[in-house]
């Protein structure tokens, strides 16, 4: 039997808004911890990034259901950044390269690089500032910096999610604000 996509597993396990919000906050915390541990081999970073990808898609879909299409674009882009970052983490874990030495450049990760640029463009449009802290600011940019930035942008998406989804009730194709 085919394995369920991770986002479906998350949706089935964490059914309510509150449960999902707690899960997403835990993932955010995990991201900060991982980013801080710069000398560590990126063990399970791939799985972590896949969780970021799946949970961002859930946020995106729930925001879209409320017709908040613009806001939904931020977690959508975060999910794409995480999707392209996962193989990088996987490669560095397999080669026993610590996060700080797992260097990401526009030359070796062109698509990932432009996706980070896109997520910042979108963030500027939505909240008038970039959601990353280290991209374009530190040299070399490595997996630790990337985890920091992915988590920071994920946090912005989570803010949209918490501010909107928890305040709306939905039935069929109708949704209405309750708070």
């Amino acid at each position: 039997m085919a394995e369920l996509p991770l986002e479906d597993v998350m949706k089935t396990t964490f059914k309510t808004f509150k449960e999902r919000e707690l899960l997403f906050r835990d993932l955010e915390e995990m991201g900060r911890e991982k980013a801080y541990e710069r000398d560590t081999i990126p063990k399970s970073d791939k799985v972590f990034l896949e969780k970021i990808m799946a949970s961002s898609r859930i946020m995106r879909d729930e925001l879209r259901e409320l017709n908040l299409k613009k806001e939904a674009r931020l977690p959508n882009y975060v999910s794409m950044v995480a999707e392209y970052a996962a193989p990088v983490a996987d490669h560095c874990e397999g080669a026993n390269i610590p996060r700080k030495d797992c260097v990401i450049t526009p030359q070796n990760q062109g698509v990932l690089w432009s996706l980070i640029e896109d997520v910042n463009t979108l963030s500027l449009e939505l909240i008038k500032r970039k959601c990353t802290f280290l991209w374009g600011e530190v040299e070399p940019y490595n997996l630790s910096s990337l985890l920091n930035d992915v988590t920071a942008c994920y946090h912005r998406g989570l803010e949209f999610y918490s501010d909107n989804v928890g305040k709306w009730q939905k039935e069929g194709k109708c949704s209405w604000r309750i708070k």
Partner: peptide
């Protein structure tokens, strides 16, 4: 009681629209 933030008549009318379009 927690639905004061949105007009209950609009909600009721919207749910009718949802039912008709769905069916």
């Amino acid at each position: 009681a927690d639905q004061v933030a949105s007009n209950p008549k609009l909600i009721e009318a919207c749910l009718l629209w949802d039912k008709i379009t769905r069916e």
